[in-house]
Design a protein around this nucleic acid. Structure first.
Lengths: 339, 339
DNA sequence: ATAAAAAATTTAAACGTTTAAATTAAAATC
DNA sequence: GATTTTAATTTAAACGTTTAAATTTTTTAT
């Protein structure tokens, strides 16, 4: 059962390939194809069950109707959420997504982009890994459209859809403060990534705006290479200060998970002994005995906006979009809300 | 910065496109290209930073070096695990994966396959949704190679990589029995899917082989459309029999999660009040107070085998592979192990 | 020096589309 | 019925590769 070509259906109808192409692409009226002929062609397409060869089409049109998506790690809840949103929005717009995960490795990130560019994707949606500025700059020099999601580089002017991490963190911190917490620890990665630094900045500013002192001992930094141990160390430290802390705000869901595991191990009760607030939720929270209060990113919206922005760029609009969205706080019971 | 073509580098060197193509594809010696010329061409490729247009190449070669992957739902742990494995193995073999999620919808499943086929993927790796037999049969008639993972149709002879679900379930049940449990409930979906039915079969056979009576009341069936409520109902039922059950074996990780949430709510302690065994693990288990004993599928291996089998097929080997793998039991403490 | 053999290179068609331009057929106008 | 206008269709080049076959150049043998 050889795949048939447009030529085959043209021959079958007894007409040139041009006509078939016209009716196939809905240009029948525009190109003044005889109505009767058009119908015969349509019928033949149906009958022979012909589907055009996208590869040939792509070559001719110099566009592939394909979006390349690089996520930071497929195992992140953020990644699957955003991927789902991007995929469904792309499909609506008749685009296919090619997909890859950098696993937080800048080299793999670059490789994936190269592969996608060679495949002539029409555009890229990227969650860049740390230290990939050079790669992003190189991309800018090429003419291929791209938009960043989630993580951005403040020194590089690109199109992006991101959370207003500063604001989200500020608000979440404020939420803790208003519940009466005075000694709040903020556990974040030691990182050069802007979006995470912004979370720290938001935390600090909220404290100082509410006249709380910022104790550096309450701001431990975790090395992701040494995640589990560093978190245990950090928690031990903030719990054993002479003025111990009354709440911990974790800067990512992964940090929260590791933190809660350790608190479980120490038999420290949430929120009885200590309050916990998480940046981002996780399926893993579901089985914790106490619903974890967390700020929640609008993944659906981000994905949708990313696709729409990208496709605008693909269609040669000269827009320049820097979109920052707000997070919601999902209120659980881990900050002592019901007390 | 216009993308340059093979012709451009040919002109730059002052040579025909054929030669450039030969050295580009490592056929320099075979095609007796002058060593010096070959070097000049290489140099030019480097200098101009030329990369071939994969689209044009695909059109000519009638192969795209692309694999289409359809998973059942991107949010399943199984999906992300297998995707990761497939992606990394594909990359090793110089293939790109195009990817989509059917969200357990047979129509979306079909659509995705159509899109991929139109894109001329070289082959497909599929986790079929329920009721997609017709689609699979249709695929068989086309000449495109594919392999199923995880879920298979016993009445259709296809290449597949799957778990031996019967055996895995049998062994897991046996594990419970050997720990002394006598009244074991098995909570599964009401489904036509073979792999899940096999789990039930394994459970039943293990019981009868160990001379335990099979009480139908201990085998509730859950409608996935009514997941949360059905599970609560099911748990209520098996707990309030006159001879109540001493262990629950959940047939999937999702069922386990919902089950544990409800047990939490009822303040029923695991394993103190009841033992719990899960088919497949989940990140969500991490924060449960008790490590959940579960059988674990070899995702890495499955993904790798799927890619290798598929690529064998793509290369016209006439193999016929039905591979069934064994699961491991990851021992936690939820079946009363340490008592 | 010439013929034959081997090495190096080029030519040109093909993959399956799209589409501007050219051509032909039909209808309208005088 | 000749001319113009409009409608319908075809032609052919192009997209960027690959590769069999043809051609040219160089080397070897006589």
């Amino acid at each position: 059962m050889k795949k048939l070509s447009l030529k085959d259906v043209a021959q079958h109808v007894g007409v040139s390939t041009a006509l078939v192409s016209y009716v196939l692409n809905g240009q029948a009226v525009e190109k003044q194809v005889n109505k009767d002929t058009a119908e015969r062609i349509m019928a033949a397409i149906e009958e022979l069950n012909y589907t055009p060869n996208q590869i040939a089409k792509s070559l001719k049109m110099r566009t592939t109707n394909t979006i390349g998506l690089v996520v930071a790690d497929i195992n992140y809840r953020f990644s699957t959420g955003i991927t789902r949103a991007i995929e469904s929005e792309s499909k609506k717009r008749n685009y296919t997504v090619i997909y890859g995960s950098s696993n937080e490795d800048e080299n793999k990130f670059s490789e994936l982009i190269d592969v996608f560019v060679n495949r002539r994707v029409d555009g890229l949606i990227l969650i860049p890994s740390e230290n990939s500025q050079d790669q992003i700059r190189a991309l800018q020099k090429s003419e291929i459209p791209f938009v960043l999601i989630d993580r951005i580089f403040p020194n590089i002017k690109t199109n992006y859809i991101s959370l207003d991490n500063f604001k989200a963190s500020y608000k979440a911190t404020e939420y803790l403060i208003k519940l009466g917490h005075k000694r709040i620890a903020f556990i974040n990665y030691k990182t050069t990534m802007f979006h995470l630094q912004e979370r720290t900045r938001g935390f600090r500013e909220a404290l100082s705006d509410h006249k709380l002192t910022i104790a550096e001992t309450l701001l431990p930094e975790i090395l992701s290479a040494n995640l589990a141990k560093d978190i245990q160390q950090a928690i031990d430290n903030v719990l054993h200060l002479q003025e111990p802390c009354d709440a911990i705000f974790f800067a990512t869901d992964t940090l929260t998970i590791h933190g809660l595991k350790y608190l479980n191990k120490l038999k420290i009760k949430v929120p009885g002994d200590i309050s916990v607030l998480s940046f981002d939720g996780s399926d893993a929270f579901e089985l914790f005995y106490c619903p974890i209060t967390h700020s929640k990113q609008p993944l659906e919206e981000m994905g949708k906006l990313a696709v729409n922005t990208l496709l605008d760029l693909v269609n040669h609009s000269k827009i320049n979009m820097q979109i920052s969205l707000d997070a919601d706080i999902v209120i659980g019971n881990s900050c002592g809300e019901s007390v």
